[in-house]
Amino acid sequence: MKIKNRVTDMLGTEYPIVQAAMGWIARSPLSSAVSNAGAMGIIETSSGELDAIREEIIKMRDLTDKPFGVNVAQAFVRDPNIVDFIIDQGIKFVTTSAGDPVKYTSMLKSAGLTVFHVVPSLSGALRAVEAGVDGLIVEGAEGGGFKNPRDVSTMVLLPLVCSKVDIPVIAAGGILDGKTMAAAFALGAEGVLLGTRILSSAESPVHQNWKDAIVEAEETDTVFLNRMGPGPALRALRTERTSRLQKHPSDNIFAEFANVQDVYFGGDLEAGIALTGQVAGRINDIKPVAQIFDELVSEFHDVIGNLHENYGVSR
């Protein structure tokens, strides 16, 4: 069931699947489960806790012998030596996001790392290509987390970018199963990134209240906040708090994350903002990461095979 293409060749994984770099959440217990299941586990740095991240990378090497990477969310970088930090840890794959790809790409590439940059627009994609990245993660507005205020859906953005670039593209936003992976490939992607589906997995360290809220969510149960700024927009789980923020935006969206630990690990979803994608409306259960990927890849092959059988042209 392995899938071989440019993404798996670059990443050294069985599947062209990457885990989203969720702050405080994407650490060794979850990320090693992703890597061990054949995909690319990612360790976050957006928490800014580099001493803790160093320990998490050490733990990763005890928990898996499979490839894994690190994310640099540029808007949250506190240490100007972040690139040296990553190189010193022996990391070979990096995703960069939330900033200008020109800032770190050349330094990372000169050290021999593979770099994929997250982009929310065609202009961002073209700039990343000019900066010399190895690949793109094209992120539609369906996904959870920090977003471009000028939101574009994956269905529109992905084929647009793929029509303009030659480097490998990983699709993000709205992806959770084999059907959506097959759709992403039909639109030009060679890989997918999963966030909310992995956030709600059995190995995810977040509180059960958040996982239960995802399982119970309808397709309309996320909100798009801070469209007019200042600061980035974001997509989050609909709660009483986020519904208020939708109607009455905060003057400082980052201040809403002051009690992030209470939300993520304490289970108080009204204490702040629980970043969640629209696919929450399609998630009906909590499963181990390995089962999620096994079912996803099996369904991916079934969908592609059925499409060919039903609509393929005989030659």
Score class of each variant (00 low, 15 high):
residue 87 I to L: 03
residue 117 H to N: 07
residue 160 L to V: 11
residue 109 K to A: 08
residue 141 A to H: 02
residue 158 L to W: 11
residue 166 D to E: 15
residue 116 F to T: 10
residue 112 G to W: 00
residue 139 E to H: 12
residue 108 L to K: 06
residue 88 D to F: 00
residue 86 I to Q: 09
residue 86 I to Y: 07
residue 166 D to A: 14
residue 85 F to H: 11
residue 128 A to P: 02
residue 84 D to W: 01
residue 93 F to T: 14
residue 111 A to M: 06
residue 121 S to H: 02
residue 130 E to I: 07
residue 142 E to Y: 05
residue 112 G to Q: 01
residue 108 L to R: 06
residue 147 K to N: 14
residue 115 V to W: 09
residue 110 S to F: 00
residue 150 R to P: 00
residue 119 V to P: 04
residue 141 A to D: 01
residue 114 T to F: 09
residue 90 G to Q: 09
residue 122 L to Y: 01
residue 83 V to Y: 10
residue 157 L to I: 06
residue 156 V to M: 13
residue 80 P to D: 15
residue 125 A to D: 07
residue 161 V to L: 10
residue 142 E to G: 05
residue 139 E to T: 13
residue 154 T to H: 05
residue 100 D to E: 13
residue 129 V to A: 05
residue 106 S to E: 15
residue 93 F to C: 06
residue 158 L to I: 12
residue 123 S to P: 00
residue 91 I to L: 10
residue 99 G to M: 12
residue 125 A to C: 04
residue 110 S to W: 01
residue 114 T to G: 07
residue 117 H to I: 02
residue 121 S to N: 05
residue 145 G to S: 04
residue 115 V to C: 08
residue 167 I to S: 08
residue 83 V to S: 08
residue 155 M to A: 14
residue 163 S to T: 05
residue 89 Q to Y: 03
residue 147 K to F: 00
residue 116 F to L: 15
residue 103 K to C: 11
residue 92 K to N: 15
residue 126 L to W: 00
residue 112 G to S: 01
residue 139 E to G: 03
residue 151 D to H: 12
residue 145 G to P: 04
residue 166 D to Q: 14
residue 127 R to K: 15
residue 156 V to E: 02
residue 117 H to R: 03
residue 122 L to R: 02
residue 164 K to R: 15
residue 144 G to H: 04
residue 135 G to D: 07
residue 96 T to Q: 05
residue 147 K to R: 15
residue 113 L to E: 10
residue 120 P to K: 09
residue 144 G to A: 07
residue 97 S to C: 09
residue 100 D to G: 06
residue 156 V to Y: 09
residue 152 V to Y: 03
residue 96 T to K: 04
residue 121 S to I: 04
residue 120 P to G: 12
residue 87 I to S: 08
residue 97 S to L: 09
residue 96 T to N: 08
residue 143 G to S: 15
residue 103 K to P: 00
residue 83 V to C: 13
residue 85 F to W: 10
residue 127 R to E: 11
residue 136 L to C: 04
residue 157 L to W: 08
residue 83 V to F: 10
residue 110 S to P: 00
residue 160 L to G: 00
residue 94 V to C: 05
residue 121 S to A: 10
residue 140 G to K: 04
residue 95 T to F: 11
residue 110 S to D: 15
residue 138 V to D: 02
residue 103 K to F: 11
residue 96 T to E: 06
residue 95 T to I: 15
residue 165 V to A: 11
residue 138 V to H: 06
residue 143 G to Y: 07
residue 152 V to G: 00
residue 125 A to T: 05
residue 127 R to A: 12
residue 140 G to M: 01
residue 117 H to A: 00
residue 150 R to N: 13
residue 91 I to Y: 08
residue 146 F to G: 03
residue 163 S to I: 03
residue 128 A to C: 03
residue 119 V to M: 04
residue 143 G to K: 09
residue 84 D to M: 03
residue 163 S to R: 13
residue 95 T to E: 14
